[in-house]
């Protein structure tokens, strides 16, 4: 098994990520491929919990890890805050990848997590139906009279709150709320409404535009990073105290943070932690395990 850590950012670029993701997808499509693991672990299954938003990246990454090592990943993806609450209570898992730095720190402080590392970052974008009928070019445009805005203010955190904070920072919150023709409770439904043309613009995480349901069905307009609320941007991955085989948990995390593993996160619309951009964000947002 390749144990080399490819953390040199100079090795990473978009083409490399896409090439690895395509290769990984091909690899996972050949179930007969033999595991090439040279390591012996004390268990054949590893339990991994993550924020549900990461599922589109973790599912193929886990298949690839199994193909390489023969280790079965028992994976659960759900709202990170709820999983974190369970973990802070009596629930147990071996590896946890959550959103919001504070959650990882809380698990460390409670003695539930041994250590964590930055995994990836999210970003927010403006999305419009194909053809951008309202000619949206900038976040300020969502405040223009007559623009039909689709929002999900009641979406589970950080969905609604993060977008509200972003709009407040941009000074468009009040007018955008007045312009809102849909005020939903689910960010995925927001995307569906937008694709159907029920509105002219919405603000979502870029990862949603990469989901198979919505891929290539919208126009994407960047939002300046200084408007993003910092809390929901970083995702971390860490080994839990209840990990049966710490070496296996570390090996899995090494794979997820390798160029090959991170390719799946880039494909799913995240900024990989080991990319130039990810390293910059890790420093800016101070995503590090204080120990």
């Amino acid at each position: 098994m390749n144990k080399k850590k490819n953390c040199d950012p100079s090795l990473l670029n978009r083409r490399a990520f896409l090439a690895t993701a395509a290769g990984a997808a091909t690899g996972t499509a050949i179930p007969g491929a033999l595991p090439a693991s040279s390591k012996q672990f004390s268990q054949s299954t590893l339990q991994v919990w993550s924020c549900g938003g990461l599922a589109e990246a973790f599912i193929p990454a886990n298949q690839k890890y199994k193909a390489k090592t023969g280790i079965e990943i028992a994976y659960t993806g759900a709202f990170a805050s709820a999983l974190g609450k369970s973990l802070l209570g009596g629930a147990k898992t071996e590896v946890f990848a959550g959103r919001v730095l504070g959650l990882a720190q809380k698990l460390r402080d409670a003695g539930k997590m041994i250590h964590f590392k930055p995994l990836c970052f999210t970003k927010y974008v403006l999305v419009t139906p194909k053809g951008n009928p309202a000619a949206i070019a900038d976040i300020k445009d969502i405040a223009n009279p007559g623009v039909r805005v689709i929002l999900a203010p009641d979406a589970s955190p950080p969905g609604g709150d993060a977008v509200a904070a972003l709009m407040r920072k941009a000074g468009v919150y009040d007018q955008a709320m007045k312009n809102a023709t849909v005020k939903g409770s689910c960010v995925q439904r927001t995307m569906e409404d937008l694709v159907k043309g029920k509105g002219d613009v919405s603000i979502v995480e870029y990862r949603l535009t990469r989901m198979p349901l919505f891929k290539d069905k919208t126009e994407i307009i960047p939002i300046p990073e200084d408007l993003f609320p910092p809390a929901p941007l970083p995702f971390t991955i860490g080994v839990m105290k209840s990990a049966g085989d710490k070496q296996l948990a570390d090996d899995y995390i090494d794979f997820i943070l390798s160029q090959e593993g991170q390719g799946f996160f880039e494909s799913a619309g995240f900024i990989p932690a080991i990319s130039d951009e990810g390293l910059r964000l890790s420093q800016k947002l101070e995503v590090q395990d204080a120990g």
Binding site: Q47, G52, A55, F58, I59, A74, Y75, T76, G77, A78, F79, A82, S156, S185, C186
Partner: peptide, 12 residues
């Protein structure tokens, strides 16, 4: 149709 649970997107 509001969501009334935390959806477990993938899991055992």
């Amino acid at each position: 149709q509001y969501r009334e649970i935390v959806p477990i997107r993938v899991g055992e």
